[in-house]
Nucleic acid binder design. Sequence first.
DNA 1: GTCTATATGCGGATAGAC
DNA 2: GTCTATCCGCATATAGAC
Lengths: 201, 201
Amino acid sequence: MQHGGTRKTILEVSAGLFASKGYSAVSMRDIAAAVGVTVGNLYYHFADKEELVRASLTYVFSERMSPLEGLLKQHASPHDRLEAFVLWFVGEIFGEEPFTRLILRELLDGTAERLEYLAKTVFKEPFTLTTKLIADCAGTSDPVMSADFVASLVLGSYQFARVLPHLTGGGPEDASSDAVARHVLRLIRTTFPLGKGVSGR
Amino acid sequence: MQHGGTRKTILEVSAGLFASKGYSAVSMRDIAAAVGVTVGNLYYHFADKEELVRASLTYVFSERMSPLEGLLKQHASPHDRLEAFVLWFVGEIFGEEPFTRLILRELLDGTAERLEYLAKTVFKEPFTLTTKLIADCAGTSDPVMSADFVASLVLGSYQFARVLPHLTGGGPEDASSDAVARHVLRLIRTTFPLGKGVSGR
DNA sequence: GTCTATATGCGGATAGAC
DNA sequence: GTCTATCCGCATATAGAC
């Protein structure tokens, strides 16, 4: 790791550990060992564990959400943009486990400040975008509630996927990223018929 | 606590602590202090912390799901039973925070064995019931997926409720138990029209 | 069944050499 | 910037008195 990015390496490695075991279950010693440095070094880069946790979250969240900017600049129809966006979001939640698990941990144990940060960095833009797209696609009475529904369903599907196999007796295939995406899109289409939006071009 | 139920008290108190802070963030000292006994006493009742965690989960899960038996014996129409059941389930998830938070923690960090236990004690019966009711109400192509959808949406709504206020600028009223129940029921009705089921009486 | 006392190691955190 | 050495309190867990 002599490419000068020790701090960055610490952030990446610790994020993975925090995601899989939880903050309080991961010690500074664990992190140091996993990174290949000493505990003292960790304290050179970060004032205390709390600051490392915060920096770790900040790093992962902004890193993961940066591609969104590109998606926002497309010029397709609201209908196509909504589909593309849902596909991307589901892929992000199901394909990037550490990212998703950190989100879920924050939702469960985050302090008020950290929740606000999570809202701002991760959910604000996607949520606003979804709300607008839905409003454009369908004359839904409450696009905010519909966006809430999309986010909740995607997040919940990820969570519930862990027990689904035990309930159906089958394998975990039912809850693959693609299946969920199709599922959500079908529900969106059924619930608010698309393609004939108020401001549809 | 001299009513002879020290063990039970330990289970109740520790469940509350585990739910709110997480297993590894709660020490045996914390529990002992909260209960009003000594650490040594904890180890008289439970071999180690892991066993206490397990017993705590077992206690809460079976305790909370016992009313379900009654619901299952109703003789109303599939449509009414599905509505009543969803109402009960949503109330349970939104109204019993410790219970719900323990479920979410297991979904996030539970070992394979504990997940199977969670599936068996908490989700198996409700899930099977929902699947059957949906199949009876509507000629849905895939009732299993629909049941998955209901569970995921309820769980996800609870989780997402924590950030929703930050996204809408409003208060947390949007995500009350009643609002979610109505929301879910409306979606169920929209997605698979009820009342004209195959085996509807 | 509950307590006191204690063993032993791990946790976060710091000082100072290189 | 990284390491070694160390402080100190808290963690899990046990032994034995009452």
